[in-house]
Amino acid sequence: MSDPDLAVRAEGLRKRYGDKLALAGLDLTVPAGTVHGLLGPNGAGKTTAVRILGTLLRFDAGRAEVAGFDVARQADQVRLRIGLVGQHAAVDEILSGRQNLAMFGRLYHLPSAVADRRADELLARFGLADTGGKPVGQYSGGMRRRLDLAAGLILAPPVLFLDEPTTGLDPRSRNEVWTAVRALVSAGTTVLLTTQYLEEADQLADQISVIDDGRIVAEGTPDGLKSLLGRDRIDVVLHRADDLPAAAALLGRVTGGPAELDQDNRRVSAPVRDRMAALTEVVRGLDDRGITAEDIALRRPTLDEVFLHLTGTGAGTGTGTDPGAGTDPGVGAGVPTPDPNEREVAL
């Protein structure tokens, strides 16, 4: 029943910890050679899903295949074909980077000479050749994470699981990891990536599944999801509350849509189409009218807004979710139709 073109196929995965349902019937397919982002907040079930697919965790119901092998019944075969990079850099702190990779190579049953050679290759590939002899305890966070990635790639596995690969990293280290992941992908590795960051999924993934409460609530390309989630907004915070009506009129004229007023925070905001043009016009308009702004920002919908929107509780909560976004004609384009029941059930 296995489809060689699918790197990951999960159907109806359920997992319960005590009385908490971590996965409530998760379906996921990842075509070989693509990068799939699993995007969701803490506790959504991302890590549970990856641990199940990586043979670390038993599941209660459903089926899962990775690289064409059954996760539950052919764990050994699966383990030969996956790399799993978790949230912590799972490497030995006392050993050097090279010794770590050589040890993991031996544990993959490569002959010693091959394991050593492979360690050197991977160190060079991840920019660790110079520091390969130092104990990992002296590595920076980004170096550790890259070593961790390298350790997951010893067998050049066709499928790589990355569980929040950049959580807790500074921007520079995060970029290093992203660069490494892109290099892998260009070499043909299938990547399933979990992340809490919209931006990370946007940067790396071909396809994104949004996960909440243990099930997929939306799926699509980054662009498709963005249009589903609503457009960027421009926010203007004024110095004086008296200027609110004038500023709202300006924003309405510039963006061609109604602006929202937030009296308490002296804020007006409106969805924009052309980001930079809108920003320029608003700044100029405020200046012409002699209105002093304390802050002007263009912002993308936040993950909170994404979830409020996707789970259907966004309207009427006054959080600024664009009520029109769901009916945006662009929505259907890149987004495969989710289970028709999904929205109602997800609440």
Partner: peptide, 13 residues
């Protein structure tokens, strides 16, 4: 605690 045990468990050893 560091996840090294999980890495071992995810390997065909």
């Amino acid at each position: 605690s560091r996840g090294v045990t999980d890495r071992f468990r995810s390997m065909p050893m």
